[in-house]
Amino acid sequence: MAHSTDQQLSEDTEIRAVAAERLTFFGDAVVAIALTLLALELPVPEGSTNSELWDSATDHRDAYMAFAISFVVIAAHWRAHHRVFRYVTSSNRLMTSLTVYWLLMLVITPFATDVIGGDGAFQARFIFYAIVQFVACVLFVLMLREIGRAALYRPGTPPDLLRGAMRRMSVVAAGFLVSIPVALATEWAYLCWILVPGISAVIFGARLRRSGGDAATAATTETFTDKD
């Protein structure tokens, strides 16, 4: 009887591990598609002379800037996903659902990029893009929280990995959220996407220096299974 139970547990563990691996591969594939769609939507400059070609490229500068921003955003998501999911060895229904919705936001990003790169109606275009990115960040944070709550990670995983990733992604989400009301007053709202994470990094670094590294030491002693 005990042997049968152990065998069943082993089979369940293997099935969950395969599910986690397939989910990771699926995420990588969708991110690759999203990045490809970004490039396909880039406008091609036209002109028969160098001057005309340059003028055409200049006319499309907003679209090129939107592409660069979206590429950095999607790449940041992929880096965080790669950093964490190489330690994930199991999955569950909630984790799968959160991942699918997160990937949906990344797939929508090329469309949102076209929207924000258009002419006129700056506030509406900007806010739509910021909301898509904010939701993507929140979903990723929820994925990280579920990994910790359900202990979906392998033994020997760095104790501070999830908390660090959650902190960084939460700061990025805050940057997009703060930019929404700012966009109602000025087109310089783009700076929120840089300033909020930058200021957060400076403050966090200053706290670590003041504490003599105690904060970093404390973080490495925490476990992922903290339910707070």
Rank of each mutant, 00 (worst) to 15 (best):
F85N: 02
V182S: 00
V84K: 05
L144Q: 02
I116D: 12
F26T: 07
V31T: 05
S200G: 08
T5P: 07
A63Q: 14
T109Y: 12
V88W: 10
L9C: 09
L208S: 13
H81L: 04
D226R: 11
L161D: 00
V135W: 01
A206W: 01
I199Y: 01
R61T: 10
T24Y: 15
V44G: 00
V18Q: 12
Y190E: 02
R163W: 15
P155T: 07
S170H: 15
M1G: 05
A215D: 09
H3P: 06
D226A: 07
G27S: 11
W188F: 12
V31W: 01
F134C: 01
F71T: 01
L9S: 12
Y129S: 02
S70G: 08
I180Y: 08
V100S: 06
A151H: 14
I108K: 09
W54M: 05
G27W: 12
T225D: 14
V132M: 00
L162S: 03
M166S: 01
D59F: 14
L40I: 04
V172H: 05
F140G: 05
S4W: 14
L104D: 12
D214R: 15
D59V: 12
R163V: 15
Y87W: 14
T24W: 14
L195W: 09
E146M: 10
L42T: 06
G118D: 04
V73Q: 07
F176Y: 01
V138W: 10
L104E: 11
A32P: 02
F25E: 01
L142E: 07
P197G: 00
F224W: 08
A68Q: 00
S179T: 08
V141G: 04
Y190K: 04
A76L: 13
A174K: 04
T96C: 10
R83Q: 09
V107W: 04
Y129P: 07
W188Y: 09
G120K: 08
P159D: 00
D62T: 09
V73C: 06
S91Q: 10
W78N: 00
M65E: 12
F111D: 02
V171E: 03
T13H: 14
V73T: 11
V171I: 15
D12T: 05
L177T: 07
T96L: 15
V178H: 06
L37H: 06
F134L: 06
Y87I: 10
L9N: 10
L142K: 08
A201S: 11
L103M: 08
L177S: 05
P158W: 10
A121P: 00
L37V: 09
R167V: 11
D55I: 13
E222W: 12
D160H: 15
P110V: 05
E187C: 05
E52S: 11
A19D: 09
V73P: 03
T113R: 08
F224V: 02
F26G: 02
I74K: 01
G175S: 04
I127G: 04
D6H: 08
R149K: 10
R125E: 03
W188M: 04
W102G: 02
R61D: 05
I147C: 02
Q8D: 12
A173C: 04
V172D: 02
L162F: 11
F71E: 05
S90I: 03
E187V: 08
A39L: 13
L177D: 03
A19R: 12
T96Y: 15
V30P: 07
I194M: 13
F126E: 00
Q8A: 12
S4L: 15
F140T: 03
T24A: 11
G213L: 03
H82N: 09
G213P: 04
P155I: 07
S10F: 10
L35S: 08
L106D: 05
A206D: 01
